[in-house]
């Protein structure tokens, strides 16, 4: 019994959406790992948040200044800002202008 076109299409879709996505995620995360190791070996520190994620963190701290986790959040925020200021190469896509605008909390 020859396979119908929809079965072929579904098998192709399954291979791409499962093995394709899993393979993409594996390659991407392993490459990111290599990049992190390279940066850590050359400058010992790494920016820990992307611009968008750091914006979210700052907004949350400003909205919840008395939260029991606020001190920890501020520490993480300030650590990232400090690292961005003291390192030349960054893991995430930070521009110099954007780093210059950052202030510690």
């Amino acid at each position: 019994m020859p396979l119908s076109a929809d079965v072929w299409a579904m098998m192709l879709f399954v291979v791409v959406s499962f093995w394709g996505v899993a393979g993409w995620a594996l390659v991407r995360t392993m490459r990111q790992e290599d990049r992190k190791v390279e940066l850590l070996e050359s400058q010992r520190e790494l920016d820990t948040y992307s611009p968008k994620a750091l914006d979210d963190l700052r907004e949350w701290i400003e909205a919840h200044p008395d939260d029991p986790y606020a001190a920890d959040a501020r520490e993480k925020y300030n650590e990232c800002v400090e690292t961005l200021r003291t390192t030349d190469r960054h893991f995430y896509g930070w521009s110099d202008e954007r780093i210059a605008r950052l202030e510690k909390l």
């Binding site: 991407r28 992307s50 994620a53 979210d56 949350w60 959040a73």
Partner: peptide, 16 residues
């Protein structure tokens, strides 16, 4: 979840 998202999930994350 928002606490966990800003503190841990998006820290060093490979995707936002």
């Amino acid at each position: 979840p928002e606490r966990l998202r800003v503190l841990s999930v998006n820290q060093n994350a490979g995707v936002y």
